[in-house]
């Protein structure tokens, strides 16, 4: 809680990972407008590259991607950046995959398509629970 209060002005560093380029772009635009520091990746590989270049607080990961299974990406993400908080976007009714993600260290999940406000709330909630360091 203290951390949250400490840096209200510092934008939350957000990595959007989704192979749907248009979705990533529009989401990125809207979130940037809402004072998030947004990075975009349209594949697992791209996400790993970006993580090596710079730090992110939170990743929003679409579990259903074409090049790699979402859970596999999650595992690698947690390996590269153990402190990264991951919020998963799942297809409707794919709760089991989401639950597996939580077992693998993801913070929570939202079903896709989700409301922007819902996502922002979740991001803020997750940021508050971000592990120290």
């Amino acid at each position: 809680m203290r951390k949250n209060e400490k840096r209200p002005s510092t934008p939350i560093r957000l990595l959007l990972i989704d192979d749907e380029v248009d979705y990533v772009n529009v989401l990125s635009n809207r979130l940037s407008k809402r004072n998030f520091d947004v990075g975009k990746a349209t594949s697992g590989a791209e996400a790993f590259q970006m993580l090596r270049k710079r730090d992110f607080d939170i990743a929003v990961l679409d579990l259903k991607m074409e090049d790699m299974d979402g859970i596999e990406i999650l595992k690698i993400l947690k390996k590269i950046a153990p402190e990264l908080v991951v919020i998963m976007l799942t297809g409707h009714g794919s709760a089991e995959a989401a639950r597996e993600g939580i077992r693998q260290g993801a913070y929570d999940y939202l079903t896709k398509p989700c409301e922007l406000d819902e996502l922002i709330d979740k991001i803020k909630e997750a940021h508050g629970h971000q592990p120290a360091g």
Binding site: D22, N29, R30, K64, G91, H92, P113, C114
Partner: peptide, 24 residues
């Protein structure tokens, strides 16, 4: 149905977000 729904989900999400973006 599930397959179709999944396929439709993404464009719908994009549409909604694009509309939101215009609103923004």
């Amino acid at each position: 149905a599930a397959g179709i729904a999944h396929e439709i989900n993404n464009p719908v999400a994009i549409m909604i977000e694009e509309a939101g973006w215009i609103q923004d």
